[in-house]
Nucleic acid binder design. Structure first.
Lengths: 321, 321
DNA sequence: TTAATGTCTTTTATCGTGAAAAAACAGTTT
DNA sequence: AAACTGTTTTTTCACGATAAAAGACATTAA
């Protein structure tokens, strides 16, 4: 009777479970270390600890761990303020990519893989403990992930009981795009009303340039479009100056992120069309003509919705409980 | 330099900290027990365990604990299927109200009290550990609460660091009401399009009746309006058949819930006006005249926004960091 | 006297653990 | 057989503990 999202609880070993009580991974350090290595290439010496911290987005504590390791491995000579680069980093100086991920990222990826891998029908139960065991993490992290994830509208909690999967269905896509269209039309209108000296106009120019470059080299770089897409839409949404609108773009971005990874059919053609629509949209915004903006925005969103919809197979009308 | 929301970390004792490792409180049991006591009044005997479970919204395990205690305290005689009521419940049979609250409720109340008590300026840091200690709960519960609460747009997390209070400001209220107006206008339009045989029309009739009754007895029962308010707006929002719109009402409901508790100025007058607006709104919906609906909806939402705004003192332009 | 480094303290992130509650299974009664 | 009761297993919820990371304080160099 009961169906679980994480079924094949195949006794895959918990690869993380080394010792016990392994509190917290040091992925922040590892990731910052890797990024710091890339900085090394072009510099003869490194700046002060606080400056490095600001650059890498980490605390001084972490910066000092990085410097300590760099000294140990002979990358730099470190004496108080003097941090001289001794040699170029080799590929084996880097920590492996997979060790730099946040637990939240690991859990999300794992969860989404299961969700999109098929066999994840609406109404299924989600089992925290089972999910945690399969991914090899503690239950707390899974719980926190599910709570955070719930705002995407794909899962729902039954009061002091399990989570229920609502499914990545046609209905979901339609509800999502309905809101998206409301929000983006309003944001685009707000965008045109921004004063000429607002920095958004130069941001828009820059994005336009990048679109043109990508359009020219579309044959080889078509997969770089998704990042550009997000940047343009986020710029427009921000013009609304409304935190709920801005935050909602997280939902859209998440869905499209996985959608791009998943649906590779006619990717090049689709992206080529979308770039054209973006350029028209950008032109309209620059013209500040509300009518044109509205039309260009509607047109693009309509085709984006269509793309999303065609990638969702309509599930058989399953029995409701 | 740093300002914390939970400052007066006054050595108030942790009233909950009885022993140690007190895993989980049995508030589900206690609350269900109390509700079951009320059922006892009008019955000579109790139904089967599964039926009781469904009625109280708890599992059979909990039902059996309840029955066991009722037998112990001489409220019923229990032998297999026979659960005969022996006496009426006395007031000391009930568990104290405060023991029936969810941890989440306790934390929310405590947090909101601090937030609204003043001295909670935008930009303040929120300290999980301190908050947990003050409330007398574990850090995990506080973390989970903050994650859940973050969707209300009042707090924001700094990556691997603290939470920041964004403040219950005028800007917040304006952003909130902007979305509310978009969503409700759309929902109200969808409402009028619902077929005549949809159950919403009788729900609406019932609500209209309750509004009329309350209007008549407004002098004494004005504080019952907030519940009616939420029911009407939720009914309308549901017509959108869009989970994001429906879910967003949680944000509105939360804000208005605390707003009602907090701003008692001219409560009677305000509610009286609102009831009038609601009745006009309901009439408009029943007429299915889109123009009328739009006007009535706009009018009511405008005055609701005004009420909310006047209750928020504009904070001094504080220095940004 | 400003801004860095060196050191120490506090907070966050994550885990394992155990009680409460749910859910599954097995045995009875109608 | 269907629906209940009795029993056992599983899952959720909440805690304290601990390493990672942030942050504060003290000291030193420019």
């Amino acid at each position: 009777m009961e169906r679980h999202i994480a079924l094949q609880a195949g006794r895959r070993k918990r690869w993380r479970a080394t010792g016990q009580g392994m509190s917290k991974s040091n992925n922040v350090y590892k990731d910052a270390f890797n990024r710091c290595l890339r900085l090394l290439d072009e510099a003869r010496s490194l700046p002060s600890e606080p400056e490095l911290g600001a650059l890498l987005g980490v605390s001084r504590t972490t910066v000092r761990s990085i410097l300590a390791r760099m000294e140990e491995t002979g990358l730099i000579a470190w004496n108080k303020r003097a941090k001289t680069v001794l040699r170029d980093p080799r590929s084996d100086d880097f920590f492996p990519e997979e060790e730099t991920d946040t637990l939240a990222e690991i859990i999300e990826r794992s969860f989404m893989r299961r969700l999109l891998a098929g066999g994840a029908e609406a109404g299924m139960q989600i089992n925290e403990l089972e999910l945690a065991r399969e991914i090899g993490v503690g239950t707390t992290s899974v719980r926190e992930f599910l709570i955070r994830f719930s705002r995407f509208g794909l899962i729902e909690k039954r009061r002091n009981s399990h989570w229920v999967l609502k499914g990545f269905t046609r209905a979901f896509a339609l509800e999502l795009t309905e809101i998206r269209e409301m929000f983006e039309l309003r944001s685009a209108a707000a965008f045109t009303a921004l004063p000429q000296d607002s920095p958004v106009w130069s941001d828009l120019d820059r994005l336009e340039g990048e679109h043109r470059v990508l359009a020219r080299e579309i044959a080889t770089r078509f997969n770089e479009f998704s990042e550009l897409d997000e940047r343009l839409h986020r710029l427009i949404h921000r013009a609304s100056r409304n935190r709920f609108i801005v935050d909602f773009y997280d939902v859209i971005a998440m869905i499209f992120h996985y959608h791009y990874q998943w649906n590779k059919a006619q990717e090049r053609e689709r992206n080529e069309v979308a770039i054209g629509e973006h350029l028209a949209y950008i032109e309209a915004l620059k013209s500040r003509d509300l009518g044109k903006v509205d039309a260009a925005c509607r047109k693009h969103l309509k085709s984006a919705r269509q793309t999303l919809l065609t990638s969702i197979p309509e599930s058989r009308p399953s029995q409701k409980n």
